Simulated scan of single mutants.
Amino acid sequence: MTDQTLKEIHQSFKVKQSSKFLDPCPKETAAAMKCLDSNNYNKSKCQDLFLQYRECKKKWLKERRELRRKGLL
């Protein structure tokens, strides 16, 4: 993720409603859901897309933790 993307996500968290879910990986989520729709919800055919989502989420969480350590969140 770029610094600009991180700033946009951070800003989204600042303005979101407390009960509203914020997805940090919308492209990966959309791709996985599209794959499931196209394959009659056979998850085994979409494993690579689920892996991409998990990697995106891991990277996002790691960056959030680092920002918290630096006192930027």
Results as ranks from 00 to 15, higher is better:
S12Y: 01
S12D: 14
F13Y: 13
F13L: 13
F13S: 11
F13M: 13
F13A: 04
F13C: 13
K14F: 05
K14Y: 02
K14A: 13
V15P: 00
V15L: 04
K16A: 15
K16Q: 07
Q17H: 13
S18V: 07
S18G: 10
S18A: 13
S18F: 08
S18W: 01
S18T: 09
S19N: 15
K20S: 13
K20E: 11
K20W: 01
F21S: 05
F21W: 05
F21V: 15
F21N: 05
L22W: 01
D23A: 04
D23L: 05
D23Q: 07
D23H: 04
D23V: 04
P24F: 14
P24K: 00
P24Y: 10
C25N: 02
C25R: 00
C25K: 04
P26L: 12
P26K: 06
K27N: 04
K27I: 11
K27W: 03
K27F: 10
K27T: 14
T29R: 03
T29L: 07
T29A: 02
T29F: 00
A30W: 08
A31M: 12
A31E: 06
A32I: 03
A32H: 07
A32W: 07
M33W: 07
M33R: 12
K34S: 06
K34N: 06
K34C: 05
C35I: 15
C35E: 06
L36K: 11
L36V: 02
L36C: 10
L36A: 08
D37R: 12
S38M: 09
S38A: 15
S38G: 14
N39G: 01
N39D: 01
N40Y: 04
Y41R: 11
Y41D: 08
Y41W: 09
Y41H: 11
Y41C: 10
Y41I: 06
N42V: 14
N42K: 15
N42P: 03
